[in-house]
């Protein structure tokens, strides 16, 4: 059953990727980015505001077209096939406010073959969210939790989470991180962007530092700690000191 994972192509490969937004002059949001992401890793995508994290993520998900360069997921361009491979949590909510949580779960189960309703309901229960609640009655943080539950209930190969923990309380944050750890499987990779580095540092294998649209550093958390004698959080504050 593991045969499908022995394909030669890396899970995610990014070649000389650039993105220029036309109405922003010559400003390059992503600038000659090269990156190869293997399976079985939990990776933090870090960088100051406006450094191109979300633009990069949107190109990986096929929501933005690159100005030049290319993204390959399992050797394929982003498209319908890659959406089967990637479970994506966008930076803002796209759920239909009038729907109940239960309807949202049915909707996802209908849409994605790899969606596990059982997993979704068990996570809802752990976080004390009623499946009968309508989304518009939920607080901002609870909505974010629902959305993350939907994304994490898939058996995807690549999870891309854009700011997954920013709006939720510390206790739920711990639960979410534990969920990420217990769901870990050596055939899939999780990329998550965040500013809350100290909260997630011990959960990460590797970190990607971006600066002005370029890749600045791609290394392991323990490499930073042993070479710099400081946490990734402290190192980030030093590297990006204003």
């Amino acid at each position: 059953m593991n045969e499908q994972y022995t394909t030669a192509a890396p899970l995610l490969q990014i070649n000389d990727l650039c993105k220029r937004y036309p109405n922003m002059g010559n400003y390059m949001s992503v600038f000659h980015m090269n990156l190869t992401i293997p399976r079985g890793r939990i990776i933090g995508l870090l960088g100051p505001n406006g450094c191109g994290k979300t633009t990069l993520i949107k190109m990986i998900n096929g929501l933005l077209a690159p100005t030049s360069g290319a993204v390959y997921i399992n050797g394929m361009f982003p498209g319908a096939e890659s959406k089967r491979v990637i479970s994506y949590l966008p930076e803002r909510t796209y759920l239909e406010n009038g729907m109940k949580v239960r309807q949202m779960i049915d909707y996802f189960a209908d849409f994605y073959a790899d969606f596990s309703k059982e997993k979704a309901y068990s996570m809802l229960e752990s976080l004390g969210i009623s499946p009968e609640a309508r989304l518009k009655t939920l607080s901002k943080g609870t909505k974010e939790k629902v959305q993350l539950i939907l994304v994490m209930s898939r058996e995807a190969e690549l999870y891309i989470l854009d700011e997954p923990i920013a709006g939720v309380d510390p206790a739920a944050r711990d639960y979410i991180l534990r969920t990420i750890i217990t769901n870990y499987n050596p055939n899939s990779t999780i990329i998550l962007s965040t500013h809350l580095i100290s909260d997630i540092e011990s959960v990460l294998d590797d970190v990607i530092f971006m600066k002005n649209g370029s890749l600045m550093l791609y290394t392991s958390v323990d490499a930073i700690r042993s070479q710099q004698n400081k946490s990734v959080d402290a190192y980030f504050r030093e590297v990006y000191a204003c």
Binding site: G40, R41, D174, Y184, S202, V203, D205
Partner: peptide
């Protein structure tokens, strides 16, 4: 490994 990783809140690879 998985249980202990969850208990410690650290990455399973670590």
């Amino acid at each position: 490994v998985r249980d202990l990783a969850a208990e410690a809140s650290v990455n399973p690879n670590t």
